[in-house]
Computed example of a mutant assay.
Amino acid sequence: MLANNIKKLRKIKRIKQTDMAKQIGIGRTALSKIENGAYFPSANTMKKISDFLNEPLGDIFFNTNVLENNTEDD
């Protein structure tokens, strides 16, 4: 779920991969690898992604339901 949430959130927010990578201080290729699940980011990079997307860290990296509008507790 890690890769899918980052890419989906970035696309929903209409942010280009190049722009996001530059803002969080990594290369576009590195961001692409993170989005595709080929590379797992450091805790520091995870925090930068969370801050940049203005989304809780858990929703991006751990909550598999975040993009299904099913994040409320029952």
Rank of each mutant, 00 (worst) to 15 (best):
K33F: 05
G37P: 00
I49K: 04
G27P: 00
S50G: 15
L53H: 13
G27F: 00
N44H: 10
T18R: 10
A3C: 08
I15S: 10
L2S: 09
M1H: 07
A38T: 10
K22E: 06
R10D: 14
T29S: 06
E35D: 02
I15D: 07
A3W: 02
I6V: 15
E68Q: 11
D51Q: 14
N4Q: 07
T29Q: 01
I60D: 01
S32F: 04
Q17P: 03
T18W: 02
D59A: 04
D19Y: 07
A3G: 10
L53S: 13
I49Q: 02
S42Q: 14
K8S: 13
M1G: 06
G37K: 03
M20A: 15
R10S: 14
G25A: 01
F61T: 02
K16W: 01
E68H: 12
M20Q: 11
G25V: 05
D73R: 12
E55S: 12
T71K: 03
Q17H: 07
K13S: 13
F52V: 12
T45S: 10
F52K: 08
T71V: 08
N69T: 08
Q23H: 14
I15E: 09
N69C: 02
K13I: 03
L2K: 08
A43V: 09
N4H: 09
G58T: 01
K7S: 04
E55Q: 14
F40H: 15
Q23R: 07
T71S: 06
I24S: 10
L53E: 13
N54H: 15
E35W: 00
D73L: 15
E68L: 01
K7N: 06
D19A: 05
L31N: 07
N70Q: 03
I26T: 07
D73Q: 03
D19H: 11
K11T: 13
K47Y: 02
N5V: 02
N69S: 15
T64E: 07
A43C: 01
